[in-house]
Structures are given as C-alpha cells and as structure tokens.
C-alpha cells in the first residue's frame, strides 16, 4: 500500500469535517475555503472541493448566497446551517474520540517499544 494512497484515504473523511469547521468561523466563498485548506495542506487538487460543497449543500448542512464582487461576476458565499452546526458538533465529539483512541494506541506502542 503506498503512502500517498493512505494519506488520501485519511484526508477524505476529514475534509468534510474541515469544510464545516472553516464555515463555522465565518462565511466564505469557494476560493477562500480552498486557500485555507491549501494552507494546511489538506487538499492537493482544488477540484476535490466542489463535489463536497455540493453534496453538503444537498444534505442541507450548508447553504449559499450570491454576493456581488468588486472584481468580476458575483460569487457564491457559503454559510453553515443549523443542521450543519449540529452535525459539526457531533463530528467534533467523534473527532476527539478518534484522536484520543489513536493517541492511546500510539503511546502504548511507544511504551511497549521502550520496554
């Protein structure tokens, strides 16, 4: 199994969670989200984001509005919905649990290795 593939698999699940996290801070349009995700190196290609946004919108986790832009045509601004917020909260909990479990496993392994 190659590492790239494994990383991609890991990122897959996290990405939707991250999008909602970004939107919970403030409303954003697609390019903002992309830039944020790129900064933290969560996405490699931008094309990945659009199907996720559309799917989340269809699941009513987020909504969007059109806003005039100073440069070029109007932009789509995404914002998180109530349902989205609830979903994000439950995701926060599962994430913490997940991180804890992984940490515990990793630490146990480490201590085992030291012994």
């Amino acid at each position: 199994m190659n590492t790239e593939n494994a990383k991609a698999q890991m990122r897959k699940g996290v990405l939707e969670y991250c999008i909602l996290s970004i939107l919970s801070d403030s409303d954003a349009y697609a390019s903002d989200i992309i830039n944020r995700l790129k900064e933290v190196r969560l996405i490699v290609v931008e094309g990945t984001l659009y199907p996720l946004l559309t799917r989340q919108k269809n699941a009513e986790l987020l909504s969007y509005r059109w806003e005039e832009s100073t440069q070029g045509p109007p932009r789509k601004y995404y914002s998180i919905t109530e349902k989205g917020k609830e979903f994000l909260d439950s995701m926060d909990i599962s994430w913490k649990e997940l991180v804890d479990s992984v940490d515990k496993l990793r630490n146990k392994n480490k201590t085992n290795n030291i012994k």
Partner: peptide, 16 residues
C-alpha cells in the same frame, strides 16, 4: 488542470 485536478485526482479524495 494541475490546480483543479483530474477526475482521477478528484475520485481519489472523493468519499461519496
């Protein structure tokens, strides 16, 4: 194309 990614790239990270 490099920035937005190919359908394969997208499929790799797609979790539908």
């Amino acid at each position: 194309i490099e920035t937005l990614g190919t359908p394969e790239d997208i499929a790799d990270s797609d979790s539908s």
